[in-house]
Every structure is written in structure tokens, then in C-alpha cells.
């Protein structure tokens, strides 16, 4: 299974203050360890929300709101996509990240189309899979 490990933004990351050397080295080592264990598929951190934007479309009208965004604790700081054998394994890796970052880290299983088997007819699943893949998804 694949899971996403999501770390959160905080006041410092939002202020654009780079993490301490200790954190950088710790995360670097963990990423290395995860790659060597064959579990890490993707790992990315994001810039502060001040460099990003939010978009919504209501009745065909597009509204773009530039960052920064106020609710710091709900913003993401980065993600890792891991290939693991169980959610517990993802949680174990996430715990190691949380310890280094000294902040809460979220673990979410990635949706597989088979999760919708009971909801959607097979043709619709196939169609959605195609759209998803065309978008370069996984």
C-alpha cells in the first residue's frame, strides 16, 4: 500500500526561517534511511504559504487569493509518499519524522480505486483511473 506522511507548517516555516542544522541533518538521514529501506517514493517540502495561492471557482467565476494564509496549523509543510506493507509501518516511519521535527505528523493511506468498488460501477472506476493517470497521478 501507499501512504502519505504529511508534516505541518508552523510559525517559523511560515516566516521562511530555515530549520536548524540539527533538524536538517536529522531529516536528511531519515530520508536516506527510508530510501535505502526501499520505502520512500517521493519526498517534498513546500515553501511558506506567502509564496502560494488559493483558487476557487463559484458559478464559473474564478477567485485567486494570494498567500499567506492565517490558519498556520492547518497548512502543510511537506509530504512523503511511501510504499509500505501496512499502515503501522507508515506510522512507524512517521513517528521517526515527528521526533526529528518535534511536531505532529499526519499519516493517510493513499486512495486506491478498489476502495470505491462498492460505490462506483466498474466502467466509472476505469474512467476515473484514466483521468487520474493522465494527470500524472500515481
Amino acid at each position: 500500500m501507499r501512504a502519505m506522511i504529511i508534516n505541518k507548517a508552523d510559525e517559523s516555516t511560515e516566516a521562511g526561517i530555515p530549520p536548524s542544522q540539527k533538524v536538517l541533518v536529522g531529516v536528511g538521514n531519515l530520508v536516506d534511511e527510508m530510501a535505502k529501506a526501499g520505502v520512500l517514493l517521493v519526498g517534498e517540502g513546500v515553501q511558506p504559504s506567502s509564496k502560494g495561492a488559493r483558487v476557487k471557482v463559484i458559478d464559473g467565476r474564478r477567485t485567486v487569493t494570494d498567500g499567506p494564509f492565517a490558519e498556520t496549523k492547518e497548512l502543510i509543510g511537506g509530504i512523503m509518499l511511501v510504499q509500505v506493507r501496512s499502515i503501522d509501518e507508515a506510522i512507524e516511519w512517521a513517528a521517526r519524522l515527528a521526533e526529528i521535527l518535534e511536531s505532529e505528523v499526519e499519516v493517510r493511506p493513499v486512495v486506491e480505486l478498489s476502495d470505491f468498488d462498492d460505490v462506483l460501477p466498474p466502467e466509472e472506476i476505469a474512467r476515473q483511473q484514466q483521468t487520474h493517470d493522465r494527470l500524472g497521478g500515481t
Binding site: A37, R85, S86, D88, E89, I91, E92
Partner: peptide
């Protein structure tokens, strides 16, 4: 137990 299982698999 889940955590132990995961640690075992990894380590």
C-alpha cells in the same frame, strides 16, 4: 502490537 510488528518488519 501493530507498532511492534512494523518495527520488526523494518529492523
Amino acid at each position: 502490537h501493530g507498532a511492534i510488528d512494523a518495527v520488526w518488519r523494518i529492523e
